[in-house]
Design a protein around this nucleic acid. Structure first.
Lengths: 261, 261
DNA sequence: GAGTGGTCTAGACCACTGA
DNA sequence: CAGTGGTCTAGACCACTCG
């Protein structure tokens, strides 16, 4: 593990302002390499969500580096929410099956500040062939099998969110409306526990749209009422997209909160 | 301070003016205290936006700690976008007056992926007494002086964003529509250069709303058309709110992008 | 008390920048 | 070349958890 560097890769002459695109990096610090090895272990399931990973000293011994270097790698993974450090106990693989991180991905809040009172209702869960647009987003071929889920989230009895979700069929065999309804806890918890698919990060595109008849009926608003459209593409390890979701939010008593840093 | 840990934190603890929160023992590590001292220096203008701050070794000497401890403090501030590290050159105070960070706060993107072509048009800039709601958000007293700005952003000639902005009057004396129009670069650049008010972070609340007559005319959409409402509260050092902004975005050809990690 | 992560140090060397 | 930040090490001690 002492081998890293040397050997400059194509100097690039520094003229062109940029193209950090695929330019040869050629230098990867040790902690970066350790981080990648750890990520690989997570991806391969060596440690499962919720479990402890080996202590820093153990990892340092395994990789033949100092504890400080392991620490920096683990810190990076903790920053990305892949690991969770707990002083005195150890470092754990992050999981969606916890109340604490319940709302990491759903950034909706009630205007009055109240929390909780969320109920889910699954309207549909069926397998169908991917339309071209969906296939492209999920990097499937048009016509590949997909799972389509439609559900409504209600807050204190009022319907607020209508979600349409597409998943690649091959990774979610056996997913049914019953399984979804039975499972207590966030949907991403079910995905990681039952199907080994863990959502790491997501990109969202937000728009304002007018409610069509169907959405209006399900969300109990007037046709044409403004709704917040949230299109989310979620990724697993390796930046592989594994979920496309289109949510329609009734924002008359709720809002989407965001932090800019 | 060369004394090893534990007691090492004590000497500085006194230097860090800190209101003792209720019975909190509040162990604060050294690097945390250094970070606070650096933040204070930034706040006090010891180093201005765009300038270099002293090198790590200098800072280590000043605070009588090791370089590693300073490094950790600076790393934290760099993570919060208050400082920018440049290998081989030094560490700089972050600034809004740079093209590179132009869109840190405006998260709008064209659906077709094209960038640029932004033009600004200031419709109004006047001083008036704060309505109760605005005053509360900015922690002013109702009736205090405020500056109200209204402007339209156009992308490639099409109006897309209508912003209504409220600022505390005492901090922005002499701000006029002319000054705004003359200034090249982002508005936050003007704020930090001319008024010493630097925006550090912001909280946004997003909603879908229907266009009223005024907004419809300015954004050239139909009355009742769905618009994305973006309510932003921006903070300076010390978590003091210094700007309230309400944007209406026409999202028919643009979207608000967000990253979930 | 043993084991975990968290802090701090001191010193070495590497990579990058600019005179 | 000197000066900057970036990486890595080895060792010390502190704060926390749990048996």
């Amino acid at each position: 593990m002492a081998s890293t560097t040397g050997t400059a890769a194509a100097p690039l002459a520094g003229a062109v302002a940029d193209a950090p695109r695929d330019a040869a990096p050629a230098f990867s610090p040790l902690y970066r390499q350790i981080k990648d090895l750890l990520t690989r272990s997570l991806q391969d399931g060596e440690w499962r969500p919720g479990e402890v990973i080996p202590s820093e000293v153990e990892l340092a011994a395994r990789f033949k580096v100092s504890q400080g270097t392991v620490r920096k790698a683990v810190d990076a993974l903790a920053d990305e929410n892949l690991l969770v450090r707990r002083q005195g106990k150890g470092t754990f693989v992050a999981t969606h099956a916890e109340q604490r991180v319940q709302f990491r991905f759903l950034r909706l809040a009630a205007d009055d500040g109240q929390e909780g009172g969320v109920t889910r209702r699954f309207i549909d869960c069926r397998r169908l062939r991917a339309p071209a647009e969906i296939a492209r987003a999920l990097t499937l071929k048009a016509g590949d099998a997909t799972v389509q889920i439609r559900r409504v989230l209600s807050f204190r009895g009022r319907p607020v969110v209508l979600d349409d979700i597409w998943l690649p069929g091959h990774a979610f065999k056996g997913l049914t409306a019953e399984r979804l309804a039975e499972y207590k806890g966030p949907m991403y918890g079910l995905f990681e526990q039952e199907f080994g698919v863990r959502m790491i990060r997501a990109e969202e595109k937000l728009r304002a749209v007018a409610a069509d008849a169907e959405a209006a009926a399900l969300l109990e608003v007037a046709v044409g009422a403004p709704l917040l459209s949230v299109e989310r593409l979620s990724f697993t390890y390796d930046d592989r997209p594994v979920e496309l979701r289109r949510g329609l939010y009734d924002t008359s008593a709720h809002h989407y909160r965001n932090q800019l840093n």
